[in-house]
Design a protein around this nucleic acid. Structure first.
Lengths: 209, 209
DNA sequence: GTTTGAATGAAACGAACGTATGAATAAAAC
DNA sequence: GTTTTATTCATACGTTCGTTTCATTCAAAC
């Protein structure tokens, strides 16, 4: 295969290093060195380090958002009243499926997403666009129809829960000391576990009082 | 009240700034300035920035771990076979209760915990001690008795889910665009919602096949 | 062949960082 | 009153960072 252009190689290197070391923990010197490019190439192709991160974030998040949107379309075309479990699968599934090749079980991409969303810097708020907001609102409306007993606030809470479980699971956080329990859970198993876990959680009756 | 000593003021300032800006986003110059102390005071009292972070992490995590441990003791003293919901409450409750005064709804402390656990730096692994591992193993054993149908791997997955939901919820992540939905959810409501959500999730039957 | 424009390269800038040093200060011990 | 010990202070060091500048390369257009 032909070696990709400098811009793509910088994007690849940045995605890897941002995921491994965080935004602030990654220097553009390290990125350009890994990409085999010159230090000034980041400024030339992207303008600044922050804009490079925004480009990386877009490239990672966009296929996930698109798959979530398409999954909801497909589901609603099949039945106007999907179950909560079907909605959970359509929403959370892409967080497992839309992982680029070479990413061991999505761990790297998950870590990158958490890096993006948990970065305290103000500029990180602009790393994702309005498309994510819109697809979340569509799912919110769909869930609201299936779970009419929930207040909007509690439903938002539960939707954040979906995201939290799928994203945080694959941080190496809580590396269990128990032996015989390989750290990176097989992707397919984690997917099944997450959907089982979250479907039951979404279907929980609202707390009385 | 008497003004606390320099060491405590540095700890307070560091806790606030680490939570707001992350570890790498916080300089010891900013910490000592906020604390009203000299730049060299961090080196004198703690040795280095990393050791200061470790001290902050210990001070934040220790009461939570202790409350989780005491809650489990109390629960097991009352009944040898607690329900999954009771275990969830004992485990997740302290993540809502053990928040210091002045921390609006635990948002700051939650953000600090996520900062600690999601920091990619290797040194971050030493920011928490073995006490957290031990209490997690005790809860694991207790959950394993209540949910005998789950494989150890899936049970660990679900316990990570408890942590994920309680910690991530209070990041300002996913600031919803919907109006009339105040961003910092009232602490008591979030606590109820989380326990309802997580109890149902823990009780989910294991996926067939 | 010359010109043009995009892309790359080497080098430097100023700023901010963590850390170390040694003097100054204050309180306690003797 | 003197000595000792524990802090605090001002300052400097060396490094790394993001960014900028300007020269150079090179293929395409003319």
């Amino acid at each position: 295969m032909a070696t990709p252009d400098t811009r793509t190689q910088i994007l690849d290197a940045a995605e890897q290093l941002f995921a491994e070391n965080g935004y602030r923990g990654t220097s553009i010197r390290a990125i350009t060195k890994l990409a085999g490019a010159n230090l000034a190439a980041v400024g030339y192709h992207f303008g600044s380090k922050a804009e490079l991160m925004a480009a990386v974030a877009r490239r990672v998040v966009e296929p996930i958002t698109a798959a979530q949107c398409a999954g909801l379309d497909r589901l609603l075309a099949r039945t106007p009243d999907p179950s909560a479990g079907e909605l959970v699968e359509a929403f959370a599934g892409p967080l497992f499926d839309e992982m680029p090749a070479g990413d061991e079980g999505g761990a790297r991409t998950s870590r990158l997403i958490v890096t993006i969303l948990s970065d305290p810097a103000e500029e990180a708020r602009s790393w994702t666009g309005p498309a994510e907001d819109s697809v979340r609102e569509r799912y919110f409306a769909a869930f609201a129809r299936v779970l009419p007993g929930l207040s909007p606030e509690e439903l938002w809470f539960r939707m954040r829960g979906i995201f939290a479980v799928t994203a945080v699971d694959r941080l190496q956080v809580h590396q269990r000391p128990s032996p015989g329990c390989a750290s990176p859970v097989a992707g397919e198993a984690a997917r099944r576990w997450a959907i089982t876990f979250l479907t039951a959680a979404m279907n929980a009756p609202p707390p009385g009082t």
